[in-house]
């Protein structure tokens, strides 16, 4: 049977992975352009969701910083009798350094202790007249690493410290540390709870928005199948579209957040009038920004994938 076939395979322009990918990306962007209103709606929704998320993240990051500065007050003081020879002092410091959790150590000699003491008695220095510094002990003030400032870690640390023979007494404001670490746990728990709810809401909203936009185009999905498109061929442009929506949505959210930050928040000392903090709020660290963008991409991808599963049954 003679079949003069005009359509007999002209050169396929898209051989190879590169060519196909190029086609898919082009197709995805054409789709976005052709379905602009729906896409804008989706991107808008994603932006709003991510704005709430990133705002919560911003508050959380700053709260963390505040509590961190507070926790700098967690300090362990080790007292010993008399003054130590420089040699003894350095071996002692080395032993303390070896305990896990030590950040840095300050030596406070007896003279210094007296000076500090009289400093606190401003205007009543007369009380100290004739008092020799020898009645005061010398001490080492130890700062702990950030992860070792909750009450359990501190008491573990102190137990270690007490094993060192030269040290006669250890003080660390036990009550305060306990209350502080209790408060920290509360903040963390509330933070995780709130963050969890927000993330859940964001996932739910974004996934459903994407599902609706894909549902609006189920005719297209059906027809592609009917003209002989493989599942992959139908899906890939939609997945790229989802990733683009996610990344653009997250970017818009971050831009708005930056705007809000620059306009109101960066010098909002009133926000945390807790004295310890210098001034204003920090912006999100780069790692968080990257994570948000990746989160947007992943959410767009997975949202599209899950929705497509429901509509492509061929």
């Amino acid at each position: 049977m003679s079949r003069k076939n005009v359509a007999k395979r002209p050169k396929l322009a898209r051989e190879g992975v590169g060519g196909r990918l190029h086609y898919f990306v082009e197709r995805a962007f054409t789709n976005i352009r052709q379905n602009l209103p729906v896409n804008l709606l989706t991107i808008g929704t994603i932006s709003l969701a991510f704005l709430i998320l990133s705002l919560a993240l911003l508050i959380f990051v700053n709260l963390e910083r505040v509590t961190e500065t507070w926790s700098d007050r967690v300090q362990v003081t080790a007292y010993f009798e008399g003054d130590l020879s420089p040699g003894d002092l350095s071996t002692l410091k080395a032993r303390i350094k070896a305990i896990k959790g030590t950040a840095d150590i300050d030596y406070v000699s007896r003279e210094e202790a007296l000076q500090r003491f009289s400093g606190r008695l401003k205007g009543q220095e007369a009380l100290l007249e004739g008092v020799s510094y020898e009645i005061l002990p010398s001490s080492l003030e130890i700062h702990l690493k950030k992860d070792n400032r909750d009450s359990e870690a501190v008491s573990r640390y102190v137990a270690q410290l007490k094993k060192i023979p030269l040290i006669t007494e250890v003080q660390y404001g036990e009550e305060w540390v306990k209350r502080f670490s209790h408060f920290m746990n509360l903040v963390r728990f509330a933070g995780i709870l709130v963050a969890g709810f927000i993330v859940l809401a964001v996932v739910f909203i974004v996934a459903n928005t994407i599902k609706l936009t894909i549902y609006a185009r189920k005719d297209e999905l059906e027809l592609m199948g009917l003209v002989g498109a493989t599942r992959l061929f139908i899906k890939v442009p939609f997945l790229i579209e989802g990733v683009v929506q996610g990344v653009v949505g997250a970017s818009v959210a971050l831009l708005v957040l930056t705007g809000v930050y620059l306009a109101f928040l960066h010098n909002a000392d009133f926000f945390f009038s807790f004295n310890t903090i210098e001034a204003g709020l920090l912006f999100l660290p780069a790692s968080h920004i990257v994570a948000l963008l990746f989160g947007g991409a992943a959410l767009g991808f997975l949202g599209s994938l899950a929705s497509l599963k429901r509509f492509i049954s061929l």
């Binding site: 050169k11 396929l12 322009a13 898209r14 051989e15 086609y23 027809l223 592609m224 002989g228």
Partner: peptide, 10 residues
Amino acid sequence: LTLEVLGWGK
């Protein structure tokens, strides 16, 4: 669409 599916060039 019919030709795109087949991998034809633009």
